[in-house]
Design a protein around this nucleic acid. Structure first.
Lengths: 152, 152
DNA sequence: ACAACTCAACCACAGTTGTAGTAGATTCAA
DNA sequence: TTGAATCTACTACAACTGTGGTTGAGTTGT
């Protein structure tokens, strides 16, 4: 899986992709309105970004409603995030630990967070070894996030 | 303390700053040679970057040896890293946990890493409370940690 | 004292990013 | 059918980035 072409997204492009990911598929107008008003660019600005994203292969036109094109993401949020994370890791000397350490130092990650993460991870580990035959298909993207915690 | 002016560094600038941080203080030539040869820009390219970094206030000239200026970092590595981390966090919806989760999912952070971190953090925590007057809350102390300044 | 070097200062330039205006095609409400 | 709304497809453009050349001043070995 994943033959994704590693596009590099700029800040604004990421902002727009965020809207696209949130909406699933939408017109330029909808995307623009999805952006936080505080930093909402002009309609044509969003349009330009969408075009560039299309050229980069990050989104594509899926259909047309009225005279408006409807776009949807090609690059998944996860893939994009991963790309960013890798780049950041490179800056951090490739060590995820120093990155974590910094999060902790600045109080953005608490001991509690880490403990939660650890137990969740523990479960995953055991699930993996125990249930390597119970696959629930469909969602190619949203890995089973265990009910109770996440929402959309 | 800390009147640091939050400079935004580009990829190349970060690369150069990396060399400066590693060297402590150095001439353009030394900085250039510190860069990994695989992606080592021309001398003048590094010089240009250093000049730009100087304008941004990220480095400064501290003295002159021969006819060469010696530069040193004004912005600390930690400050720069922090800035990047904050930006990444914003993209991740402000949640350090989803960031961690992604690190784990991609196998870049192992259960072992987390355990190590946890114990290290545990020590720090107890040290801190021991020093401030011993206030250990067994469960989840979700103290509102606004970006206020902490001593260290 | 000089030639050979090394640097500092500038300058140049194309590609990227953020931001948006314009003109003409479509669609919609009366 | 028409004028108002919307959209698309272009075009524009300045600031930022990456990259490196040129020139002339300063330094050095011999």
């Amino acid at each position: 899986m994943a033959k994704e072409k590693q596009v590099r997204l700029t800040r604004l492009e990421l902002e727009v992709m965020g809207a696209v990911w949130a909406l699933g598929s939408a017109s330029v107008r909808e995307i623009q309105e999805q952006l936080p008003e505080r930093k909402r660019p002009a309609y044509t600005t969003v349009q330009t970004i969408i075009y560039r994203l299309e050229e980069k292969g990050a989104v594509r036109r899926v259909k047309k409603i009225g005279n408006a094109h409807i776009f949807e993401a090609v690059v998944t949020r996860k893939a994009a995030h991963n790309r960013l994370l890798d780049e950041l890791l490179h800056v951090f000397g490739g060590s995820p630990r120093s990155l974590m350490a910094q999060l902790v130092e600045t109080g953005q990650l608490t001991l509690q967070d880490i403990r939660d993460l650890e137990s969740t991870l523990g479960e995953l580990e055991s699930n993996k070894s125990a249930a390597t035959g119970a696959r629930e298909s469909s969602g190619s993207e949203k890995k089973s996030k265990r009910p109770g915690r996440r929402a959309k």
